[in-house]
């Protein structure tokens, strides 16, 4: 049994220590908002936060998450100070939607570290997240909008 803290909740997880966090979240705990896309940290669909830093959970061993705070898309959605999803709705970003959890988790770290990102900052910070539907222009627009909302306390519409 591995003890994990995920989205402010304690879990005792029946997982071998070499199991990637992704599969503990998805297959053992049923937290399926975090997606499997490549299994080798190439696509970013599995992005979660480990102590507020973005990690690719498909290559992060579950043992590495012990004693740390894990946040998944389910946890981020419950955070009222997060404007990303509001911006995503406003811009109507998703198409197939499969990569969007990971996109939003990466964008959340970007906006925390850089509340006013340029297009180039976004290109760099989001380069690890693939979207085959090509929603990139809308993701970029939504990140700018969320940044604006964040700066102005969510009053922007």
């Amino acid at each position: 049994m591995v003890k994990l803290k995920i989205n402010q909740k304690e879990y005792s997880v029946d997982a071998s220590p070499d199991m990637p966090l992704l599969w503990a979240l998805r297959d053992v705990l049923g937290l399926t908002g975090t997606k499997f896309g490549c299994g080798m940290a190439q696509c970013g669909a599995c992005t979660v936060h480990l102590d507020r830093e973005a990690v690719r959970s498909c290559v992060t061993l579950v043992s590495r998450a012990v004693g740390k705070e894990v946040t998944t898309i389910e946890g981020l959605s419950a955070d009222p100070t997060n404007y990303l999803q509001k911006a995503w709705l406003e811009v109507d970003v998703p198409q197939c939607g499969y990569c969007q959890s990971g996109q939003i988790m990466s964008a959340a770290v970007l906006l925390r570290e850089n509340p006013n990102p340029t297009d180039e900052d976004i290109d760099t910070a989001m380069s690890g997240n693939i979207c085959r539907c090509g929603t990139y222009p809308r993701i970029r627009k939504a990140i700018h909008l969320a940044a604006q909302m964040q700066r102005e306390g969510g009053k922007v519409q």
């Binding site: 998805r26 297959d27 049923g30 937290l31 399926t32 908002g33 975090t34 997606k35 499997f36 998944t72 898309i73 389910e74 959605s77 999803q85 995503w88 709705l89 109507d92 970003v93 998703p94 939607g97 499969y98 969007q100 959890s101 939003i104």
Partner: peptide, 21 residues
């Protein structure tokens, strides 16, 4: 008209084949 499936696709609740358990 805004997509009806956007809310579920941005909070992890949309169910894909991969999420069937």
């Amino acid at each position: 008209v805004k997509r009806l499936d956007t809310p579920a696709k941005i909070n992890g609740t949309a169910k894909f084949g991969m999420d069937v358990q």
